[in-house]
Design a protein around this nucleic acid. Structure first.
Length: 952
RNA sequence: GCGAGCGUGGCGAAACUGGUAGACGCAGCGGACUUAAAAUCCGUUCGCCGCAAGGCGGUGCGGGUUCAAGUCCCGCCGCUCGCACCA
């Protein structure tokens, strides 16, 4: 007798062929794991195979994985699985970029230790990530906050130091005078510390630097060889390095304030006597000079500030802008006359004023410029503001020298020089050369190569980072920690709270006290830690030998695997992370760690778009709330009325500009009647909408469709819940299907539904076929009936799909590959009939489909593979190759144009001779009608593409 | 401010080196099956004119090159990313 339970199970099995991801997905993950198919082979074991190192930028363990993260990994995984199926020895590892600010923020806000917080997050995220079924070699997992990792980083630091790639230098930092900490640029909001609200000061600290500029030329030149990088990234890197030819010009003083000290300062410079050095890339515009401008922290500015309170106040004002270049350059151009006058290098009688100006960067060139207003917008704005006279010296093409004038808009392009004495009539390019010749002859300047690239400041005054292995000794100075004393491990017993501001390492009672390795006297440890970009500048090398205790990695292993064959990550890393990694790889090579002549870590790069999701915001007017409508008053006195409880679409998030108090200025689309009022705004989760409507009768709920998923915006779709509801394959398929990979994709319920429907459809087709064809043998080749009609058409389509999907994956056109799979599924579903030919065609097409989808939806594909009667994993099965005879097209449809407009179509054999196609086209009835009464001038035949008849 | 990128139906998009604009998916509409619903299947969907055949317009906006432009060039508008201490 059957128990009720068995009965129930039996009935379910009989009536439901629905694909059950909750059983299927964990089952296959366990099988892959047990078989160890995701482990990379050692170079010896992989003899005869080519290697493929596939890497996605590793994540920061911020808490939980959401579906937005999954796109990056899904893309890398498609490539990794595709390479494996094509016979490569694949290395596809995963790790954690685990040092960083958020851990310290969590510590301050919630009293959790950064280490515990970080490792808890890693544990949670690892489990989530595993749900995705990524073909990752988990035996190589690493976290940059592991001592086992950063002790090697300290060794690398020491090696770089020996190679003179490390030095110390004074650098400006944002200083919060209340919390007594250095602020990151993102922690400076409107010139104030984000937590304390205190106006930011700038301080100069002695900082550790990496000499990136030692490789400037090579980093620039080698960009030309990065053929498999996106052009935009290569261009951004080139511009960032910014090599330019220019000049240094020494401007002799003609007048200085009496208070200026006559003696030399620490650098041996006499401000009262020595000329001012200025850097320029445009010496051709020297005759258009109007003023000199010095950085606020130029030594001369600072010296004058000692006796000029207004200058000191100006410097303090500039300090409030912080150190962010974007903030500095966006601010209104202001300056102060320093009371210094200089003589023009080409004309002794020409005297120019010297200003300190907020837009001059001390980090670039000599920290001083000459302003040539007609040719530079910043200089022009500045000259106009301070009513400084100037004249144009570059005549734009097509302009008349007699009438051309510059008032509000500078002309920055090339032209012909005029108003410029001996430079008159020269082109911009020639004038630059001529001006430099003259400067050199006069001893007033010299030609220089200038770089925008600066050395890399790696010091951070923070706890949660890799300690810098250095010791400060009163007698011996700054001394490296001996290699045998590594690691310099972070102490665990630190506290974070408001009452004890500053760097916890610095105020730790014992940690920093040590003895000098050279003279053995009392000394202190360096309390700065390394920028987290250092951690991510060599992790790709560590993955090649992640458990090596003696050294960062084995040279032979790293040299086997590197460079990374495919690197996948966000564009936001286009400049800094990639540049630093390129520097680091060269430095490691030159320190003997690596046998990699190019010094290039990433052979091929793909920058993927983000997953964005709608953001719901509740707007509650601070003022009156009506009953059926909300009246929103505008700053200009007008008002608009909005119905209550309606979901509005703001077209972009910039219409909701945040201001720090937690309130937001809400502006509406211009269609709706323009801009806003101050309201309280809060983010809503979808589940909170009904409640919010009920609780806020005067409120308006807005949907802003495009925001990167983030916890604070409440628009994250958590991965666990999603995988439970729909399965990992649906998530993977969805994030790859709707948008081109380099563009953002919007997460939508309907998109999910589409992906879900596809999974079910594939399974139903396989299941139906497998049941109908049970016991059939498909090993015998093409049976009768499969070589003609619909079965043949299906086979042809399937083989074309193989070619197309293969090429689409290779070129990162995942969304197109997905579309091809849809087409194939549609075609399979369309084929009716249950004769041998139809069964055969279906078996072949479904087999191909299963393989084509396997990099995208590995669990489903594995289940289908088994159901279709194959042994082993589809994951390790050889990638299909199209039969050329089946994939070829033997007829083509050619559009016929008359004067560029399509008038007819003809069918023609592929590769038909031009003359024949031409005749066919000209004889076509519809075409003839259009040719009546006109003369055919020309017939253009593009073989297998188009015919265009030119006639009049 | 500077540097870079992107912009195609109601929506996500496709169109590989200039060669039929809108493949494929979503949503919609019409139909089949069903007591009904869901699911599934079939058809249809850029706009305008036309009973139809067909015609005209159309890839952010304005120009240009070409037999032919979504694609190339010039100028604008909008959005996104980066700007060196977020990662």
């Amino acid at each position: 007798m059957q128990s009720p339970k068995t009965l129930l199970e039996g009935r379910e099995a009989a009536m439901s062929s629905r694909y059950n991801h909750r059983e299927v997905e964990p089952k296959w993950r366990a099988k892959w794991d047990a078989a160890g198919i995701d482990r990379a082979l050692t170079p010896d074991a992989a003899k005869g195979k080519k290697k493929a190192y596939i890497l996605e930028m590793f994540p920061y363990p911020s808490g939980r994985i959401h579906v937005g993260h999954s796109r990056n990994y899904a893309m890398g995984d498609v490539i990794a699985r595709f390479r494996r199926a094509n016979g490569y020895n694949v290395l596809h590892p995963m790790g954690w970029d685990a040092f960083g600010l958020p851990a310290e923020n969590a510590a301050m806000e919630r009293g959790i230790h950064p280490k515990g917080w970080t490792y808890d997050n890693i544990a949670a995220m690892r489990e989530q990530l595993k749900l995705l079924g990524l073909a990752i070699d988990w035996s190589r997992e690493l976290a940059t906050c592991d001592v086992a990792y950063y002790k090697h980083q300290q060794a690398l630091f020491l090696a770089f130091w020996r190679k003179d790639l490390v030095y110390r230098k004074k650098q400006k930092v944002n200083w919060d005078p209340v919390d007594n900490i250095v602020l990151a640029n993102e922690q400076v909001v409107d010139g104030k510390g984000w937590r304390s609200g205190a106006p930011v000061e700038t301080r100069e600290l002695e900082q550790w630097m990496f000499r990136v500029t030692a490789y400037a030329d090579d980093l620039l030149q080698a960009i030309g060889g990065l053929e498999r990088w996106p052009d935009k990234v290569r261009l951004m890197q080139s511009n960032w390095i910014g090599k330019s030819q220019g000049a240094k010009i020494w401007w002799p003083l003609s007048k200085t304030p009496d208070e200026l000290p006559k003696t030399a300062d620490a650098s041996g410079r006499s401000h009262a006597r020595d000329p001012i050095e200025v850097s320029t890339t445009r010496p051709d515009t020297l005759f258009g000079a109007s003023f000199l401008a010095l950085a606020p922290d130029h030594p001369l500015t600072k010296t004058i500030a000692q006796f000029r309170p207004d200058v000191a106040a100006f410097i303090a004002d500039c300090a409030r802008l912080g150190t962010s270049e974007a903030d500095i350059e966006k601010a209104e151009k202001t300056g102060v006359d320093l009371g210094v006058r200089v003589k023009h290098p080409f004309d002794e009688s020409w005297e120019l004023p010297v200003y300190a100006a907020n837009f001059v960067l001390s980090s670039y060139g000599s920290g001083a410029i000459f302003g040539s207003p007609a040719g530079d917008q910043r200089d022009l704005d500045f000259a106009n503001k301070y009513k400084l006279p100037f004249k144009p010296v570059v005549l734009p093409p097509g302009e008349d020298a007699a009438t051309y004038a510059v008032t509000d808009e500078a002309f920055t392009d090339d032209g012909v020089i005029y108003n410029s004495g001996f430079l008159d009539g020269l082109s911009t390019r020639d004038a630059i050369v001529r001006a430099i010749d003259e400067l050199v002859k006069l001893g007033a300047g010299e030609a220089t190569t200038q770089w925008r690239l600066r050395d890399w400041g790696v010091s951070r005054q923070r706890y949660w980072g890799c300690p810098i292995p250095a010791i400060h000794c009163a007698k011996c100075g700054v001394v490296p920690v001996p290699e045998k004393d590594l690691p310099v491990a972070l102490p665990d017993d630190v506290t974070f709270d408001r009452d004890h501001p500053g760097n916890p390492l610095d105020r730790h009672p014992t940690w920093k006290h040590t003895t000098c390795p050279q003279c053995n006297s009392e000394a202190t440890r360096e309390t700065d830690t390394l920028d987290t970009f250092v951690d991510s500048s060599w992790y790709f090398a560590r993955f090649t030998d992640p458990n090596n205790e003696a050294q960062p990695f084995d040279k032979a292993l790293a040299s086997y695997w590197l460079p990374v064959d495919q690197y996948v990550g966000g564009v936001e890393h286009a400049v800094l992370h990639l540049l630093y990694a390129r520097f680091f790889t060269r430095a490691m090579r030159d320190c003997g760690y690596l046998d990699l002549p190019s010094g290039e870590p990433f052979k091929s790069l793909f920058t993927q778009g983000m997953v964005v999701h709608e953001v719901l915001r509740l707007a509650v007017p601070v003022g009156n709330a009506g009953s059926g409508e909300t009246v929103v008053s505008l700053p200009d006195g007008a008002s608009i009325r909005l119905p209550v409880g309606v979901l509005y679409e703001a077209h972009n998030t910039h219409q909701l500009a945040s201001i720090p108090s937690g309130r937001t200025i809400l502006r509406f689309d211009s269609d709706a009647g323009a801009a806003g009022t101050i309201v309280d705004l809060s983010y809503l989760e979808p589940a909170e909408v009904d409640r919010a409507k009920a609780d806020n009768p005067g409120g308006v709920i807005f949907s802003c469709p495009i925001e990167k998923m983030s916890k604070s915006k409440k628009n994250v779709v958590d991965l666990d819940a999603f995988v439970t509801d729909f399965g990992a394959d649906v998530a993977r398929w969805f994030v790859l299907s709707d948008s081109p990979p380099e563009r953002d994709v919007e997460w939508t319920a309907s998109g999910v539904k589409g992906a879900w429907g596809f999974v079910q459809r594939v399974w139903t087709l396989v299941d139906t076929h497998a049941n109908a064809a049970a016991g059939m043998d498909f090993g015998g080749g093409l049976p009768e009936g499969a070589d003609q009609g619909e079965p043949l058409a299906l086979l042809q389509l399937a083989h074309r799909a193989v070619d197309s999907v293969t090429s689409d994956i290779e070129h990162f056109r995942f969304n197109v590959a997905v579309a091809r799979c849809y087409e194939l599924v549609n075609a399979i579903a369309k084929l009716k009939g249950d004769d041998a030919g139809a069964h055969y065609a279906r078996q072949q097409a479904l087999t191909i489909l299963t393989q084509l989808i396997s990099p995208f939806m590995p669990h489903l594909a594995e289940e289908c593979w088994e159901h279709l009667g194959y042994a082993g994993f589809v994951a390790t099965a050889r990638w299909p190759v199209a039969d050329p005879a089946l994939a070829a097209r033997n007829t083509v449809t050619l559009p016929i144009q008359v004067n560029g407009k399509k008038r007819a179509e003809i069918g023609a054999p592929a590769g038909a001779p031009e003359a024949a196609v031409r005749e066919l086209a000209l004889q076509h009835a519809a075409v003839k009608a259009f040719l009546e009464g006109v003369t055919v001038r020309k017939v253009i035949v593009v073989p297998d593409r188009i015919v265009n008849i030119v006639a009049n």
